[in-house]
């Protein structure tokens, strides 16, 4: 009976895979919001886009630049919210690995799923506003 009792470990590495899924999601959100920032920075720099724009407001006007800036800030806030969800979730997953026998410790809180979903909706709205303003 010399064998030490090995800590419970999921042979399917489910918690680890879930943590990686959160990381991938955060990376996708960063890409989406960086593209909105790119549009704002181009407007700030006064770069005229190659094609004539279908912009509702004149390109380079203060309203155009401020509007794109608001979209970029909203996009960043939603991304930061997703990063925070992911950090908390990964911490919960790692803490839950030791106590796999009690599912309550490792399942995702409803609030986190709702927050992530709402953050994507807000990011989508920022994206649509930025495109309407004519990047």
């Amino acid at each position: 009976m010399g064998a030490t009792h090995a800590p419970a470990r999921d042979p399917g590495l489910q918690p680890e895979r879930t943590a990686l899924a959160w990381r991938r999601t955060v990376m996708s959100a960063i890409i989406a919001s960086v593209l909105i920032w790119r549009g704002w920075i181009q407007a700030l720099a006064g770069t005229q886009t190659a094609a004539e724009s279908a912009s509702l407001i004149g390109q380079g006007s203060p309203a155009h630049i401020v509007g794109l800036g608001i979209c970029a800030v909203v996009a960043s806030v939603t991304t930061i919210i997703l990063v925070m969800c992911s950090v908390v979730r990964i911490r919960l997953l790692h803490a839950g690995v030791g106590v796999l026998e009690s599912s309550a410790h490792i399942t995702v809180p409803t609030l986190m799923v709702r927050t992530a979903s709402a953050a994507i909706v807000a990011l989508a709205l920022a994206t649509m506003c930025a495109m309407a303003l004519g990047i």
Partner: peptide
């Protein structure tokens, strides 16, 4: 439910969320 099923459900949610993010990034 068994935690493995819960986590699988969570990963499916995240996969759809990434699809949504890909649509947004693609649009911009």
């Amino acid at each position: 439910p068994d935690y493995r099923f819960s986590l699988a459900n969570e990963r499916t949610f995240l996969a759809w969320v990434r699809t949504a993010l890909a649509l947004l990034a693609g649009a911009v």
